[in-house]
Structure formats: structure tokens, C-alpha cells
Amino acid sequence: MSTAIQRPSDSIKPAVDKSGFKYRLIRDAKINKYVYLMLLPVVVYYVVFYYVPLYGLQIAFKDYSPGLGILHSDWVGLKHFKDFFGSHYFSRILRNTLLISFYDLLFTFPASIVLALLLNELRSAMLKRTVQTITYMPHFISIVVVSGMLVDFLARDGLVNNLLHAWFGVQPITFLQESGWFRFVFISSNIWQNIGWGSIIYLSAMAGIDPSLYEASRVDGASRLRQTFHITLPGIMPTVVILLILQIGNFMSVGADKILLLYNPTTYETADVIGTFVYRKGILESNFSYSAAVGLFNSLINFTLLLSANALSRRTSEHKLW
């Protein structure tokens, strides 16, 4: 890394080894003293709130007791991991986490791309702007309010049941009390809340596509459908791949806080995921070491998935995160 500053005046001063690491270090500290002063609180923040917890993760391999503290609690090796893999919760919460993530990837992720493509084809600029304004909005509503509205609308005598009964004669369904409905409710409300917001980034990628490509293809007589598949989609592909890698890197962290608001013991069978399990075991039951182990298991899978997705994309295409 050559970040040493070369100024004309340097050549006048004699006899100092200007390429030396120590020299550059001191010089950098002198010139950038205020820059480092600004950086100090930022670095302190990240060290304290991100790297100290990383160090604290060792309790996953210990029997943490608040009296002894992180450092002095006894090592127990992989006991908590073995307990977790052997417990009857393991297959349930792993299955739920994987399925909810998979459905999210399968439905929510492409929904934004489809919306962006449809918005891109709209002829009326005013309609486009209106649809955008409206569909971006739910992104700014808190999960508590969205969940509260779901609880109300999906109640036995709520809006959804009333409409289903009036239009199709369907008998009332207690959506949030039946495990069979949970994933559907969760994923469809995710789409409702995020489809518009997710489309912004694709629309901006589309705006960056060279217009002459469209003109050339029009001269060649290509239809709009062909243009979509041969110009627009390839044009946004780098963005799609990057976002896909990022999403895969977060595969195991499904929106646990929304699940926490929507689930209840009757729906644990399909709704309980690793994130909510860690919350119950750790925060509610104070099983710190055990839940830290479960959390670490989750983070490790996420990180591995991220690295694999990035490596795979590197090998098969030009697009990569790093």
C-alpha cells in the first residue's frame, strides 16, 4: 500500500529514508492528525460494539455464569452445540429457517425485479411516479404497525375474513392461529412491504443502460419483449447478482423480529426460526451460553453461504461482491 505523500519539498530534505515504514507512519500521523481524531470515535464504536461481542462469542464454548464473567467461566468445548444438534427443536427450527428464507428468495426477491421491469415499460410518467410513491411507502412503516395491522385484518372477524366470506363464501380462517398459514402470511406481507423499495435499485440500474442499445435494436425490428430480455435484463444483471449474493449471505437471518411479533405457541411448528429461538432461550430464559452457540451456528452458516455465493459468482460470471 503506497499512501505516502510525495511533495516537491520532500526532495530537498536530505538523509531520511523516505520509503521506510516508520517514516511514513509518522508523516501520515502528522499530516492526518485531525483525520485520525475524527476516525477515533468511529473505530472505538466498532471495536466496542462489534469486536468485543465477537470476543464474547467464546461463551458458546463455555458455561457462562454472570458471576464469573466471560473470561473466568469454565470451558465446556462443543457441549452446547451437541445439545442443540441433539435437541428435538433442532430439525424444526432449521427447517423453518431454511424454508422461510427459501420462499423469501423465491418470491420476494424476484417480485421487485418484475415490478421494476413493469414500471420501466409504463408510458405515462405520471402514473409511473404515482405507483412508485405509493409502493415505496410501506417500507417506512414499522414492523410493529405492519404486524398489528396483520393481526387485526387477519382476525376471525377481521377485514380479510369478511371479504373472503362476502366474495367467495369462505368460512372464517384464523390465519395467525393455524401453522399451515404462517409462511404464506409472512412472505406475502413481506412482498407487500418491500416490493416497491426493492425495485428502486433496479430502476436506477435500468436508467444507466445505454439508450443507443435500444435504438439499435428498434432499427433491427426487435419487439419490446425482446428488448426486455436482451437489453434490459442483461443490463441490470450485475445489480441482480450483487443483491442475490448479499441476500444469500443473510440467508439464515430471516426477519426474526417480525416473526416474534406474529407467531405464538400454536404456530411454532412452522414459524419458530433460529433467531426467535435464540431470543427465547437467551433473553427470556437466560440460557446465555446455549443460545450464543445457536447464534454462532447461524452466523457461521450465513458467512459460509456468503463466501460460497461470491466465489461461485466469481467463477461463473464477472459479477462479484469483492
Partner: peptide
């Protein structure tokens, strides 16, 4: 990659 919920909570 970060410590996650529990170590942060204890901190």
C-alpha cells in the same frame, strides 16, 4: 459477521 444477539446483550 458479528457476535450476534447474546454477546451484544451481555455487553
Amino acid at each position: 459477521f458479528n457476535g450476534g444477539l447474546i454477546p451484544t446483550y451481555l455487553l
